[in-house]
Design a protein around this nucleic acid. Structure first.
Lengths: 227, 227
DNA sequence: GTCTATACACCGATAGAC
DNA sequence: GTCTATCGGTGTATAGAC
């Protein structure tokens, strides 16, 4: 009896941390890192602000923990996919899951803020480790999909990976939702469609850029910088 | 002589406003709206903070003015394109221009912040007017491109438009730049490529989703909400 | 109009009682 | 560990001298 008391309290402690991360997850997606205050989090969880700091020693640690949890959930989701799915199916599945997760009020995979948050994340060892683990998995899938001819060979892997990640924090999602003409399911379909097949839609055989067409490949004005 | 004095002062006044907007443009792209302070702007321009409020009565007005100027510049760019260009060429040209503008340190077309800025913009009459004007132009181009078979017919116009706008505030741009493996010109090419032709690359005739393939169209888990 | 100085509010983090 | 109260710092906006 007495031997169970400590594990119980510990279990309760971890349950509260989960509740905190849920609140952070929701707030982070609605207001972003900069506008999310510790008061917001405390109020959403139903505890005092001071108590928050007994669980997480800073706002940055708190937000990073939520991001790490998301990355790990994504990995679990990848592992839970049907055996029959090919590499491109899994990548599409991950993208769908991300978009649905976001539409339900979850954090995006990438920090959309151009602020201090991104930099603090890169100095957080837990986050970097989780990100690298997921990234390795995704890169392997991309390589496999390229072998199957499902992804253009000449597309750099990092472009593919970041494009997939970034779609979950694309403001297009918010704007489409605000315009109210598409359901959530249709928004997901549209985003998946444009991401994988582009605006031209690879269903059509006719390609826009014929071998000897006029040259819109170059920039309209010579603004290109090699940096 | 004396008749020119007033126009001169006025000209000087407007030149200073241009300088202010340049600074805002740069700061807004680097730090985002929330992290950009009026002190930052004042220091960048080289004037006192109090003087700023003689030109713009609030931070929101200031940021909105920068966004309006960007939208108008985009319209000018669209009008300056070669006559021979088709609708899809112009849309691609606009996308390229946006990406290059962003890589040179300019504001993105959409407010990436999930904060109060977006809401304040929608209550700014000047911004809404400029956005509607550009939007009308873009929608016309999309319709024309669809007629030519350059854009998938079943893609809603708003999805196409927002996808084009959103690409200029895509965090992929930042991450690719940080990884240092691609030049700025290559980043632009890659982004334009994925946007128009998707990750699968519509150069290949073989399409991923055959008519009677297995069904990855449905979500991996039934997370779809009709809302 | 441009400057300096300041009012007012908010937020992250801490202190200390219980 | 949870609470209330508070410190220190920062940011928007304004006041007032020149």
């Amino acid at each position: 009896m007495l031997g169970l008391k400590l594990p119980f309290k510990q279990q309760q402690f971890e349950a509260r941390e989960e509740a905190i991360l849920d609140a952070v997850n929701s707030l982070l997606s609605r207001k972003g890192y900069d506008l999310m205050t510790m008061d917001d989090v405390a109020e959403a969880v139903g505890i005092a602000k001071g108590s928050l700091y007994k669980h997480f020693s800073s706002k940055e640690k708190l937000a990073a923990a939520a991001m790490v949890r998301l990355l790990n959930e994504t990995l679990v989701e990848l592992d839970a996919m049907p055996e029959a799915w090919s590499a491109i199916d899994r990548l599409e599945g991950m993208l769908r899951w991300s978009l649905e997760h976001r539409l339900k009020g979850g954090v995006p995979h990438l920090p959309s803020t151009r602020g201090a948050f991104q930099r603090s994340l890169l100095m957080n060892l837990d986050y970097v480790a989780a990100a690298m683990k997921l990234n390795k998995r995704v890169y392997a899938l991309i390589d496999e999909a390229k072998l199957h001819g499902d992804i253009a060979q000449d597309m750099p892997n990092e472009v593919v990976a970041f494009t997939l990640y970034a779609r979950s924090c694309d403001p297009t999602v918010d704007f489409l939702r605000q315009s109210k003409t598409l359901s959530d399911a249709e928004i997901v379909d549209a985003l998946v469609d444009t991401t994988l097949r582009g605006l031209t839609g690879s269903r059509r055989k006719a390609l826009r850029r014929k071998p000897d067409a006029h040259p819109p490949a170059a920039a309209p004005r010579s603004l290109a910088r090699t940096r």
